[in-house]
């Protein structure tokens, strides 16, 4: 268990350092930070001073080490475009994105597993066909169109729900939440559905496919030959084996929910990190871009560690460290 955790952790750190290197390279290759910060009109004198102060004359390994150190403290410098500290920008927008992403993930995973199991067990039924067809349409529907469609129905035509923004938020220290006010909760509904829908269809199809695969396994056949009740075979034997691969992929999907939030946030003008990032891309605002990249990588690593841990709980083959008795 301990060795396993260490290995996962080491892999996570490796990914973070790799991504950090990409983020760091962006600073070096994209534009000239000095020009970006001082503008075209600055004097030669000013430029040299800033270059020296930023340590841009040091050899790159030293610069990279400094970058890593700063990144670990959440410092990515100052946004070229907004002139504010990137760490402040991120802190301000983090709660909006996290609230949206976590709720979407819960919605997508919960309903996705339920519908997927149902479609696998009742393979040929009418409801299953409806579920599978809807899911295929869901995969082909771009997220932004789902968002626009929902806005059109629920905001423009029915006028039930707001079409943009977070509504009223309550501040809890540096965190802000929309969950405590009615307008905040109402504002969350459409973005959560939009962001969750794609993941929902994906998880549903995955669960169904995995479950059908497991249902063909020898041990399921053997369980049938032992006369075990169908319900027990499906919900005990098959489902538990299904969940192992599902946990991995659903976990990775959870990470991508954060990134997919880019689109949803743009559609709903949601004041989160994704919208910040799209803006940064349009203007090649490197500090924001690299900070966002590091943020996504960190989420990815954390999710991965959690998935590994869950694996451990679900699969006894890992728990005993692949120790297989020899001899007969």
């Amino acid at each position: 268990m301990f060795a396993f955790a260490i290995r996962s952790l080491a892999q996570g750190v490796l990914v973070l350092v790799t991504v950090a290197f990409i983020a760091f390279s962006m600073f070096r290759f994209v534009g000239d930070p000095v020009v970006n910060m001082l503008g075209q009109e600055a004097t030669q004198q000013d430029r040299q001073e800033l270059t020296e102060r930023l340590g841009l004359n040091d050899p790159w390994p030293i610069q990279f080490a400094r970058f890593l150190g700063n990144a670990a403290q959440g410092e990515f410098g100052v946004s070229y475009r907004q002139g504010r500290k990137v760490s402040d920008l991120i802190k301000e927008r983090l709660p909006a994105t996290l609230e949206l992403a976590v709720l979407s993930a819960i919605f997508a995973t919960g309903l996705g597993v339920l519908l997927g199991v149902y479609a696998a067990i009742n393979r040929t039924g009418f409801v299953s066909n409806v579920i599978m067809t809807t899911s295929l349409i869901g995969v082909s529907l771009p997220t932004f169109l789902i968002g626009i469609g929902l806005i059109y129905i629920f905001a423009v035509e029915l006028r039930w729900l707001p079409s943009f923004g977070r509504g009223d938020v309550v501040r809890l220290g540096w965190w802000s939440t929309g969950l405590l006010t009615e307008s905040g909760r109402k504002s969350l509904i459409l973005p959560v559905l939009t962001l969750g829908f794609f993941q929902l269809t994906l998880i549903m199809r995955l669960v169904r496919a995995e479950m059908l695969e497991v249902m063909r396994a020898d041990f399921i056949r053997f369980a049938r030959a032992r006369g075990i009740a169908d319900r027990s075979i499906e919900l005990r034997h098959a489902l538990r084996n299904t969940l192992i691969p599902v946990v991995t992929i659903a976990g990775l999907q959870l990470g991508s929910v954060i990134a997919f939030a880019i689109v949803t946030e743009t559609v709903f003008q949601w004041p989160g990190l994704g919208a910040l990032f799209v803006n940064a891309v349009q203007f090649a605002d490197v500090p924001v871009m690299s900070a966002y990249l590091m943020f996504v990588a960190a989420v990815f690593v954390i999710v991965n560690l959690t998935v590994d841990l869950l694996y451990f709980i679900l699969d006894p083959r890992l728990r005993s460290g692949r120790r297989v008795a020899k001899g007969h």
Binding site: A217, D218, R240, I244
Partner: peptide
Amino acid sequence: IGMIFQDPLTSLNPLF
């Protein structure tokens, strides 16, 4: 009627 299959490696549910 009891049944025994060919492959004992895959006849048992690995998670139980």
